[in-house]
Design a protein around this nucleic acid. Sequence first.
DNA 1: TAGATTGTTAATCGATTAACAATC
DNA 2: TAGATTGTTAATCGATTAACAATC
Lengths: 213, 213
Amino acid sequence: MADNKISKAVIKRLPRYYRYLGELLEMGVQRISSEELSKKMKVTASQIRQDLNHFGGFGQQGYGYNVEYLYEEIAKILGLDRIYNVIIIGAGNLGRAIANYANFEKRGFKVIGIFDINEDLKGGMVRGIKVCHMSELEDFVKDNVVDIAALTIPKTEAVKAAEVLVELGVKAFWNFAHTDLNVPADVMVESVHLSESLMRLSYNLKNAGKGDE
Amino acid sequence: MADNKISKAVIKRLPRYYRYLGELLEMGVQRISSEELSKKMKVTASQIRQDLNHFGGFGQQGYGYNVEYLYEEIAKILGLDRIYNVIIIGAGNLGRAIANYANFEKRGFKVIGIFDINEDLKGGMVRGIKVCHMSELEDFVKDNVVDIAALTIPKTEAVKAAEVLVELGVKAFWNFAHTDLNVPADVMVESVHLSESLMRLSYNLKNAGKGDE
DNA sequence: TAGATTGTTAATCGATTAACAATC
DNA sequence: TAGATTGTTAATCGATTAACAATC
């Protein structure tokens, strides 16, 4: 019963289902009920069934869900059934961490270019990819299909880079800069605000035991 | 009107308020109304007032909020009015990215140790801190106050390290491994699941234009 | 005092959970 | 067929928004 509008809360949970199903698959588990999965994941069985049914009936009454089938279906829903060309803006530690993370490539996220303003880094190699100077960015994007740009540079530069890249037609940004990006409605931004994450941790640490989880 | 139980949704928004207030402060803005702030942040003014009033009345009728005062108060709420000793488990690119990020130290998160299983990295320096071998971890935690452990290692090792550190009394984990950690109720875990973030981006990219944001 | 804007209550909206009929 | 478990509707719960009296 594929809805036309899926809530953010549901989307947020999908990758987690995918991760658990991947682990079950590795362990050789062939079928699982929403009840069993709910215990593993510490969510309600009702939520799992509800979530999945936004996209279609993947299970079977009296049986449960076929792990491999469900895994593949969620991959399709998440758009993991294709290759994405990724460029990384910023060849610092964070940029290199992303470039080096092999699992991303396994899921179809292929790093095709790394750029940095620092002249010294130019020519260096990261995981077989040459680091280019920012001045080469525009030509590169014109000559190559770029699906996603990861921004691992400080906020001021990130805002500028995003502007240029939006102009060049890039439709998706993975933003690690400590700022929000203003982009047109058809451009997607997924932000990873590490400092905000750390602040939530300090809040929770401070309020530990006060009725908290 | 400080509630005793604040919802996760509110906590999640606090660091973002803090970031915007910090920017306003840098720009020399002294006062702001919930209405003005709501326009900047693209949330409702009602939500801002509602959120802040969970912690107390920081504003003034007819005036709005004093930027500096509100900024400081939110810092206190988030627990940013103290120093946290942080250790980093994993001296790879991600671990080094975190260690090198100066803003964290500015907010009171002080890296006091970096550990790795790789013997080759031992003795190397990251931002003035010596990289130690994992075998030295236990003694280090016994001899030093460790408030937060950042786990920037693969999942299997992360699970093991967390177990050891919980045993040693560490109460907060900043988890970058692609797994959930099972810890006692009084131990806090804040996870940054980069691959899940990337999957949400690919979902949104795929479904762009279908009534989406 | 009049105008502005908060703090707070009430109304609405959406998300989660419970329940159960459908069905494998 | 009987048992199990889904798909889906209905009930509940919580979070967001609207409204406005309080007050600076």
